[in-house]
Design a protein around this nucleic acid. Structure first.
Lengths: 123, 123
DNA sequence: TTTCTTGCAAAGAGTTTGCATTCCA
DNA sequence: TGGAATGCAAACTCTTTGCAAGAAA
């Protein structure tokens, strides 16, 4: 089963991996482990349903990352260069509760994407 | 110039329109106004650079909306059904300042996408 | 004329699907 | 054996690009 290989690739990949990244990474770790893109996509979908992985949609390509429940964090995604950096904003956790109470919407709080312009692109 | 038509379509479309939505809408409003998808995409890019329009990346397709600076709001995007609803969370504006101060990253605060599971999909 | 904008058609990129095969329980 | 997982190739969708024609300055 390729599932564990994909999950491993994601955990060791440091988050924000595209499906193609994962494909290449699994293939690199074990050249004999024939793996296909279809499997990557199908497995990612399964893992997302299991809440083990979450998706950060981006223009063009989505990135995926392992959902580490013990270390919730958020993402700053630059609209110009596409770079994604992680950030911790404790206050967002409170907002999560507020949203849930007000709307019944269950936010993936460990996976909030904030779009904007990064420091480099601003200058 | 099709620019104004596209902007009009976006403002009247109530936000969260895909490029294709816009294409159809412009065409519907004026069947003689030959317009092409290329123009829609090219114009949207121009409008985004002008900060008049912002993009909310989604899995598969991005949606665009008119940037109304007087009414900042945020989006709850369901990871299952894809529905996007608007919500106002004043506290997020404070967080915006915090992020800017800490990282130099300039958030598009009127355009923050929160992924999660909507009330309908949870039940 | 010179430059910018547009439409069309073709190309690209990312993702999904159909189907036959293989793997386990 | 029966159901789930996989690879391959083809199909699809969304988006971008090249190029020639038209509009604007």
């Amino acid at each position: 089963m390729q599932r564990s290989k994909i999950l491993t690739a994601l955990r060791h990949g440091g988050g924000h991996r595209t499906a193609d990244d994962i494909f290449e990474r699994v293939r690199a770790e074990d050249p004999h482990a024939g793996i296909s893109r279809s499997t990557v996509y199908r497995t990612l979908e399964t893992l997302m349903q299991m809440q083990l992985v979450s998706e950060l949609p981006g223009a063009g390509t989505s990135t995926y990352e392992w959902t580490d429940r013990d270390a919730p964090h958020h993402h700053l995604v630059c609209r110009q260069c596409g770079a994604a950096t992680e950030i911790e904003v404790p206050a967002l956790t409170e907002i999560e509760s507020e949203i849930r109470a007000r709307t019944g919407f269950e936010p993936d709080i460990h996976h909030l994407g904030i779009t904007g312009l990064c420091a480099s692109c601003r200058s």
